[in-house]
Write a protein that binds this DNA or RNA. Structure first.
Lengths: 205, 205
DNA sequence: TTGACAAGCGGAACATTGCTCCACATACTC
DNA sequence: GAGTATGTGGAGCAATGTTCCGCTTGTCAA
C-alpha cells in the first residue's frame, strides 16, 4: 500500500519483501544441519536435534518448515539441485565421456544416501507427492545433455533413454545394501562400457 | 526344577509352561485388532487404539509385543501364514488350475493391504529384517505346489520360477494405486493365460 | 473344592517428540 | 537514530511410545 512497499516490490520480482538477512542465514543453517542429521540418524531424527545443530530455536525452524515433512522435502530438493547442477560443472571441466562417468557416480552416491527417504516417499504424506516429479524434472535434462555431448563428441555410440538409465541405476541402488555400492559401481562401469560401442543386433532369447 | 515343572515340560515341547488361557485369548485379540487398525489407519496407528479395540490394557499389549515393530511384524507373519495356508485349502477344494487362479487372487489381495508396510520394511528397524525371508519361505512352496499340481494335471504347460512370479505380481501391485487392483487382476489373467499354452520360441528383440 | 501363588492384567505415570504461541529481539527503512 | 515489520527462541501443549507395579485370575497340588 505505502510507497515504501511499492519501492521494495519493484526491486523484487514477486513477494512483498526479501527475506531478512538473518532469516536467510538461519534457513541455510537448518537445511545444512538437517542434511547432516538425516544422513547419520535418518529422516526420523527429532526436529529438536536439527534446530540445536543449526543453532536456532525450534520456533525458527517451524516458521520456515511448518511440518517435518516440509523440511525433509526441502533437503531432498536441495540435494537434487546440487546433484543436477554438478552436471554442468563437470561438463565444463571434463571431456564429455569423463563428465558423464563422473556424474553418474555422483548420482549413485546421491542415491546411496536416500535409504531412509525411500520409506518416507511411500508414506503417503502429501508433502512428498511432488518429489518424484521434481527428481525426474531435474535429473533427466542433466543426464540428457551429458549423453548428447558424449555422443556428439563420438565417445559413445548410443544415446539411451535418459529416464531408463536413471531408473535402472536407481533400481540397482535400491536392491543393494549400503556396502554394496562397489557392486553398483561395477555394474555402472558395465553400462558405460556398453554405451561406447555399437549395439549388436540382438537375436534369439 | 520341581517335579511339576518337569511334568509340564514333558507335555510341552519347549518352554517351561504353556501360555495361560486368558493370555492366549488376549494375544489373539490384539493381533486381530491390530490387523484391522493397520488396514484402516496404517501401521503407524497409535498403540493405545489397538489395545482399546482389542479390549486389553496397554501393559498387556506391551508384555507380548515389547516394541511397536514387534506387533507389526507379528501381524505380517500371521497374514503370510493365512495366505500361504489358503493354498492347501484351495488345492483340496478345487481343480488344480482353479486353485492356482484363486490363490493368486488371494495373493494380490494380500499385497493390496500392504501399502503402508512397504515403507516400514525399508525403515531399517531390525524387527523387520527377517520378514522378506519369511515371506519367501512361505509363499514360494505354496505357489510351487499349486504350479506343479496344475502342470501335472495338464492344465498348464509351463512351470515358471515361482519366485519370479511372486515378484512380478508384487511389482505390479506396488507400482499401482489402491484402486488399480482391477488392472492388476487383468494382468494376472494374462499371466495365467500365458501359463496355459506352449511357450513360443522368442525371436528378435 | 480349595488355597496358594506364579502368571498375567490394566492403566497411571513417565519420556519423547511434533507443533503452537507469544513476549522479546533485531534488521531494515527513512 | 527511531519506528516498525519481520524474525527469534523456547516454554508449554498434545499425542504417543514405553515402563512400572499393585491388583486380579488361571492353574495345579492336595
Amino acid at each position: 500500500m505505502t510507497k515504501q512497499k511499492d519501492a521494495v516490490k519493484v526491486s523484487k520480482d514477486e513477494k512483498k519483501r526479501p527475506l531478512r538477512a538473518d532469516a536467510l542465514r538461519n534457513e541455510d543453517a537448518v537445511l545444512q544441519a538437517a542434511k547432516e542429521i538425516f544422513l547419520t540418524s535418518g529422516v526420523n531424527a527429532p526436529v529438536r536435534d536439527i534446530a540445536a545443530k543449526a543453532g536456532v530455536g525450534i520456533g525458527t525452524l517451524y516458521r520456515r518448515f511448518p511440518q517435518r515433512s516440509d523440511l525433509v522435502a526441502s533437503v531432498f530438493r536441495r540435494e537434487v539441485d546440487d546433484c543436477a547442477a554438478k552436471a554442468t560443472t563437470l561438463a565444463t571441466e571434463n571431456a564429455p565421456l569423463k563428465a558423464l562417468k563422473l556424474w553418474l557416480k555422483c548420482y549413485v552416491d546421491f542415491l546411496a544416501t536416500k535409504k531412509g527417504l525411500a520409506a518416507a516417499l511411500h508414506s503417503g504424506d502429501p508433502a512428498f507427492e511432488a518429489l518424484p516429479a521434481y527428481f525426474r524434472a531435474n535429473f533427466e535434462p542433466a543426464l540428457t545433455s551429458l549423453l548428447i555431448a558424449a555422443r556428439d563428441s563420438g565417445e559413445i555410440k548410443e544415446v539411451v533413454d535418459p529416464y531408463d538409465l536413471l531408473r535402472a541405476i536407481g533400481n540397482l541402488s535400491v536392491t543393494n545394501n549400503a556396502d554394496d555400492i562397489k557392486h553398483t559401481y561395477r555394474i555402472l562401469d558395465l553400462l558405460i562400457n556398453g554405451l561406447q560401442f555399437e549395439k549388436k543386433t540382438s537375436r534369439g532369447v
